[in-house]
Design a protein around this nucleic acid. Structure first.
Length: 465
DNA sequence: GCATGATCATGC
DNA sequence: GCATGATCATGC
């Protein structure tokens, strides 16, 4: 073991050392410094031992060949003297050249017995993840870990930034365990911090839980993909522009639900046109998204959706639904257009649709009481998809990916084929097309959640109880 | 009446 | 010009 090139007890020293990697690869910097951090191996040698596609390959290489750490005691922080954890996070480039974090960031595993005994203040989560050194790198399955380019390295102190929400999320997970409902935990329960299933298949990862005899899938805590992507964006902005205005809508000790309800309260029972009049905005009945536009303006969202800190960090889905006098709705819910070239390169858990499905939903319900009367703002409802239903969304997504890969754009899953989700066109008109992996152009389409599913899971619970 | 495909206004 | 969040139109 050679001498380390940084001070193991100092966060600034470790962060500075990590930042030497920015815009370079580990092997480049090691060569410049004439050091392999005491370990005389380059990435080809390690790469031959480890499959290049091994998901942890870059993280291990960073730890061993750059920081000179042996990857042994996993429950201890990576830099115990500095109370600092090291995490590598892969980036991908979308077909529009936008750079995005590729997947959720997995933190510590937990057992239901342990979390049952903890409170947030003394939790393993808080202890281990208070200071995280994040190293964002460009993922490429064809390259050795030492040849991957690092984009950004920086410190994220999640409690200083977002303690209230992380505590609320942690508590939701712990409370399900307290209630003997570990088997009902869903990634959609929470906004930033998630309890994700990890690694092994469902059958082999079943665990006992303290307050129920029902076995539940083992879980790890993670930063959900929207949150880690948000962190990447914030750190990039701070590096490029300094600490510019970060537009938070929550004040201290206020929950997301309380804030949203407070924003909508003044307009309850008022018609769309009345709301526009009160707010001094124009109302155009020919605009098909007029109800959605009102809802977005009330919470302060711009079209791009990333202008509010909490919305960008959580990926929360704000949707408006028109409700008929009998408590039913007419239409299914649409999502972003499918990127035909992007989807064939993606895994389910990295996809836009997965991200939407596992986010929380805010439904803004506009109702009318007779067939010919105006719709008025009736209620605001929070909801998430139960995890038991994720599989069918995944099946629809996988089927769509497979058909696009084979060049079949004519036989996507229809609304009549299941009770949950389908694929349908969404473009300016039939001539509005998108480039495909086959080099042809096909009509734009997107994933939809079936009206029937929303009716049963959301509207019936609100209007038929 | 429902399934499916087509289309529209908006804002950046 | 384009993505978005929807609603509309048609044919069976």
């Amino acid at each position: 073991m050679g001498k380390l090139l940084y001070d193991e007890a100092s966060i600034p020293s470790i962060v500075e050392y990590a930042q030497r990697l920015e815009n370079k690869t580990i092997d480049e910097v090691n060569t410049e410094q004439n050091s392999y951090a005491g370990i005389h191996q380059n990435s080809q040698q390690i790469g031959q031992k480890q499959n290049k596609k091994n998901k942890g390959a870059f993280g291990n290489y960073l730890e061993e060949a750059y920081f000179g750490k042996k990857n042994d005691n996993k429950s201890q922080a990576d830099f115990p003297l500095a109370h600092l954890e090291l995490k590598a996070s892969p980036l991908k480039t979308l077909s529009n050249y936008e750079v995005r974090v590729k997947e959720r960031l997995v933190l510590n595993h937990f057992t239901f017995t342990d979390i049952d005994k903890e409170v947030f203040e003394n939790s393993h989560f808080k202890e281990k993840n208070e200071n995280i050194l994040l190293v964002f790198y460009h993922y490429d399955s064809k390259l050795f870990p030492g040849d991957l380019k690092v984009q950004l390295a920086d410190l994220w102190q999640c409690l200083k930034e977002d303690e209230a929400q992380l505590r609320a999320d942690w508590q939701i997970i712990a409370d399900k365990v307290h209630a003997g409902k570990a088997h009902e935990i869903s990634e959609g329960d929470t906004l930033y911090l998630g309890a994700c299933t990890k690694g092994a298949t469902a059958a082999t990862s079943m665990q006992l839980q303290p307050h129920s005899d029902i076995k539940a899938r083992g879980r790890a805590l993670c930063f959900k993909s929207c949150y880690i992507n948000h962190i990447y964006q914030i750190l990039t902005q701070r590096k490029e522009h300094g600490r510019i205005l970060e537009n938070r809508i929550l004040s201290k000790n206020e929950t997301f639900e309380q804030k949203i309800n407070a924003l909508f309260n003044p307009y309850l029972k008022k018609s769309a046109e009345e709301i526009c009049a009160i707010r001094g905005e124009k109302y155009n009945p020919a605009n098909k998204s007029r109800y959605a536009d009102i809802a977005r303006k009330i919470v302060g969202l711009k079209k791009s959706e990333d202008n509010l800190y909490e919305f960008n960090a959580s990926g929360i889905q704000l949707k408006t639904i028109r409700v008929e006098p009998d408590g039913t709705s007419i239409e299914s819910l649409s999502f972003k257009n499918v990127d035909f070239c992007g989807i064939v390169e993606e895994e389910w858990e990295e996809s836009d649709f997965y991200s939407a499905i596992t986010s929380k939903f805010i439904f803004v319900l506009f109702k009318h009481d007779t067939k010919d009367s105006e719709y008025y703002l009736d209620r605001v409802v929070f909801w998430q998809i139960p995890e038991n239903d994720y599989q069918i969304f995944k099946d629809v997504w996988e089927d769509t990916k497979r058909k696009i890969k084979s060049g079949d754009y004519e036989h996507f899953i229809k609304i009549s084929e299941n009770h949950v989700s389908h694929i349908r066109p969404k473009g300016k008109n039939a001539k509005d097309v998108m480039y495909t992996p086959q080099g042809s152009y096909e009509k734009k389409k997107c994933f939809w959640i079936n009206q029937e599913y929303i009716q049963k899971n959301v509207l019936d619970k609100v209007y038929k109880s």
